[in-house]
Simulated scan of single mutants.
Amino acid sequence: MFGYQFYWSIVWSALPQLLAGAWVSLQITVLSLIIGTLIALPMAVARQGGSGWGYRVSTAWVELSRNTPVLFQVYMIYFGLGALGINISSYISVLAAISFNNAGYLAEIFRGGLNAVPRQQMSGARSLGMTTFQGFIHIVFPQMFKIIFFAYVTQAIWGMLNTSLGMLVGLKELAGAAQYAQSVSFRTFEFFIVTAAIYYAMAKAVQLSAQLVFRLMYRS
């Protein structure tokens, strides 16, 4: 094709570095999803309330995270805080930015799920002697997660793909490892084809695993 000669052997020799980068990407994906979930749940409840300081703070978070690029959020944490003398590693910066972004999107996903759960469910929980917190934990949230399960998985995949932005702040996650390898070998096409294939394989693995988990949890 256009006289281009492929040298796949260079890519295979660097495969351990790419897989190490993929492991970093998966670490950030899981951690940012956990952090985002823990922040998004109370924000969704506050947003559903429709008033108060919790509503205002969570609304500002959702608006900012959902209406600015993730790249901007990474840069603001890494370079913006750095300009103020607060130096954060590229790993923590990417983790914080994706957690921030996940929380905004998940808050709206959770809010939609909460609205789909009949309000009588909480009334029933309170009539059984549960506190509001216990009602959410034992009655409302389990029903909500069934409703939003696949939207949640989609956000997890979106967060995983966004870890590639770490390349721009020097993080050697999957895309960063590929960028470094191709800068040394000058085999850009080969490295990024293989890297794209690894991203695709990871995304499909998450998707298929989620389908299996859903069947085991909700359709057994």
Rank of each mutant, 00 (worst) to 15 (best):
F2C: 02
Y4K: 00
Q5P: 01
Y7R: 12
S9D: 13
S9H: 14
I10H: 11
P16S: 14
L19P: 00
A20M: 15
W23Q: 14
S25Q: 14
L26E: 04
S32C: 12
L33I: 08
G36Q: 04
A40L: 07
L41Y: 12
P42W: 09
A44W: 06
A44K: 02
A46V: 07
G49V: 04
Y55H: 12
R56E: 05
S58V: 03
T59G: 09
W61E: 00
L64D: 01
L64N: 00
T68L: 10
F72V: 11
F72Y: 07
Y78P: 03
G80L: 08
L84R: 10
S89T: 14
S90W: 06
Y91L: 12
Y91P: 01
S93N: 08
S93R: 08
V94A: 10
I98M: 03
I98H: 01
N102H: 05
N102I: 06
G104L: 05
Y105D: 01
Y105A: 04
Y105G: 00
L106S: 05
E108V: 04
I109F: 06
F110D: 03
R111D: 03
G113S: 07
L114G: 04
L114E: 01
L114I: 12
V117N: 09
P118L: 12
S123C: 06
F133A: 14
Q134F: 02
Q134R: 15
Q134I: 09
G135Q: 14
F136G: 05
F136M: 14
H138Y: 15
V140Q: 02
F145E: 07
I147V: 13
Y152A: 09
W158K: 09
G166Y: 10
G166Q: 11
M167K: 13
M167C: 10
L168M: 10
L168Y: 13
A175T: 15
G176D: 01
G176E: 00
Y180A: 12
V184N: 13
S185N: 15
E190I: 08
F191K: 00
F192Y: 15
V194N: 01
T195I: 11
A196Q: 00
I198E: 02
A203N: 08
A210H: 04
Q211D: 11
L212N: 05
R219N: 08
